[in-house]
């Protein structure tokens, strides 16, 4: 039996037919039904199956896996811990030294037969479809950021950043019982989406008095927690400056640039900086439950939904890049029995 996978090669995105993988012990094969494609997927390593965020249906299981799982709709964890480092052995695999990200350091999910571990899939709760479930990865990252923070219901928070992760974090934060939530984002459409869900959304104030106004609105001394999703040194510094004394900053975006700063901002301010990179399976499950109960307004996250063949056509005619430019997700649908690349 053959299947189709879509890889990024030097020639661009290419669909290829290959032999459908056979699951080994403890493995399952997932036929992707929905995958999220963003600009970073077009920067994946050469010859990589793209998409770290996807959901689908189990179509085969290996030895030791309940055959009753075949046909189950699942979301797939967007990463794979190594499993052997001290962190993993301590049960803290989110800090794994050998963590691999799907669609980046290992193959992703834009294929109609993806081999994954049975422990890497999460059955979808009733009422949650594959298209929404494909957003689980970014929302679970946001949920972990909130759980790792010192923020408690009633606290005031701010979300800074200009990308999809900031949008996801603000929407999850609105389900966390926080007091006032401020959303500082470049894109007016994202600001509108978050504001309509109850936050105060503003454009980045630059160096102006807008920060002071925001600080005042957030309790007088700044927010209890700032979720920094921009990843730039400027945004990180603004986050540390904005948070109140003894408050915390959670860095959600990954960026290796060092931050030139007065470290006394942290020391004298008794502030803390934490990071959130991925999430646990339990956090992914909790995210899916919140999504299924409509506690997270996922509709604001979705930009465009396209069929897989239309997606490939856009890749070939050069229109894909511009279609992926927004913060909202582009969902690629892969219906059952679709002949791809024809």
């Amino acid at each position: 039996m053959t299947c189709t996978e879509i890889r990024l090669t030097d020639a661009g995105l290419e669909a290829a037919r290959i032999e459908q993988p056979s699951p080994g012990p403890g493995e399952v094969v997932v036929a992707t039904r929905a995958a999220i494609v963003g600009p970073t997927d077009l920067e994946a390593p050469n010859n990589r199956v793209i998409c770290g965020e996807f959901s689908g249906e189990i179509i085969d299981v290996g030895p030791g896996v309940d055959r009753g799982m075949i046909g189950t709709a699942v979301a797939v964890l967007g990463f794979r811990p190594g499993g052997t480092c001290d962190r993993c052995l301590d049960g803290a695999s989110t800090a794994c030294s050998d963590l691999q990200l799907r669609g980046d350091s290992i193959d992703g999910g834009l294929a109609n037969a993806v081999l994954v571990g049975a422990h890497e899939v999460l059955p979808l709760p009733a009422g949650l479809g594959c298209e929404a479930a494909a957003l689980m990865h970014r929302l679970a990252r946001a949920l972990r950021a909130i759980r790792r923070s010192t923020g408690r219901p009633g606290d005031h928070v701010a979300v800074l950043g200009g990308g999809p992760l900031a949008l996801a974090t603000s929407l999850v934060s609105l389900s966390a019982g926080f007091g006032r939530t401020a959303f500082v984002h470049d894109h007016a459409r994202c600001r509108d989406a978050v504001a309509s869900n109850g936050a105060r959304a503003v454009a980045p104030p630059g160096n102006g008095a807008g920060w002071d106004e925001l600080r005042t609105w957030l309790g007088g001394y700044g927010p209890d927690v700032v979720f920094e999703c921009g990843g730039t040194p400027e945004s990180r510094l603004a986050a540390i400056d904005l948070t109140r004394p003894a408050g915390s900053v959670v860095l959600v975006a990954d960026d290796a640039t060092r931050v030139p700063m007065d470290i006394n901002l942290l020391v004298m301010g008794d502030k803390r900086v934490q990071g959130a990179r991925v999430y646990t399976a339990g956090e992914a499950r909790a995210t899916l439950e919140l999504m299924a109960r409509s506690r997270i307004k996922v509709s604001a996250l979705i930009g465009e939904t396209v069929e897989v063949n239309a997606f490939l056509a856009a890749a070939r005619n050069g229109s894909l890049q511009s279609r992926l430019a927004g913060c909202e997700a582009t969902i690629v649908r892969w219906p059952r029995d679709t002949a791809v690349g024809a």
């Binding site: 990954d254 640039t257 470290i263 006394n264 942290l266 990071g275």
Partner: peptide
Amino acid sequence: LAGITESPSDVDLNAAVRDEKEIRGC
């Protein structure tokens, strides 16, 4: 971090993300 600095520094804050370390003023 308990030491007080006399001048600005370049700080690798990304360790907080990459390795989930927590950096806390004390």
